[in-house]
Nucleic acid binder design. Structure first.
Lengths: 107, 107
DNA sequence: TTAATATGCAACCGTTTGGTTGCATAACGT
DNA sequence: ACGTTATGCAACCAAACGGTTGCATATTAA
């Protein structure tokens, strides 16, 4: 899961995901046309996305097609974000309680 | 939003969020007891969490209480993850179509 | 007022990261 | 077979990162 968070941390990689979201199954060279960076740079980013299992590569001849894999995002959403979202109300009441404690007359 | 993704990328910072999730409103020194790192190191991490608005600090005298703010996580979930999750089915069909195209007899 | 407590700030350092250039390899078209 | 196309791999570099040490500052307690 650490790999997923790390992969999402970079804006270029998020842009790549967005690009694939727009048109799934693009080759490396196709993806290069949308991001001003060398092919090798993009290939590195794709490597991290693939390592994080956010993107799945499929070879067709000499072309490498890149497909989105939404599973890790779903996992993060379910196992991490929802857990914290569930504590939303609690966190807010904690904050207001903290603010109340700041009032001098409340001590 | 970039700050939020960057803040979430480090396991120590996620551990801090978990710790606050366990007991909201802890001071810096309290948080230090759960993570084997110097106070200054933790303070740096908290600084990034605060910059990303994931944690809101409240001063009470010389103590700095740290409160979770679930809003950014909710935003990320809604504006980013859900969008990709929505494409889940599509991504999978794309993948299987890609796999089909690999079969030589399908060309 | 003085000592202890809670935090902030800055410099420093090794490692990782983001990106480049250069070259190698494999597959396709002619 | 040969040139072109699509990709991989390695070295290299500056910048950012994660973490430390040392010192400064502000608040509380005696």
């Amino acid at each position: 899961m650490d790999d997923v968070f790390k992969a999402l941390a970079d804006p270029s990689r998020r842009a790549l995901l967005d690009q694939l979201h727009l048109h799934n199954g693009q080759t490396l060279n196709q993806l290069c046309q949308h991001l001003r960076m060398t092919r090798q740079g993009i290939a590195k980013h794709l490597g991290l996305l693939i390592k994080a299992d956010l993107v799945i590569p499929l070879w067709r001849g000499r072309e490498k097609l890149h497909y989105l894999n939404p599973a890790p995002l779903k996992q993060i959403s379910e196992r991490w974000i929802d857990k914290h979202k569930a504590a939303c109300l609690r966190a807010l009441t904690d904050l207001t309680k903290g603010l109340d404690a700041l009032k001098p007359e409340s001590n």
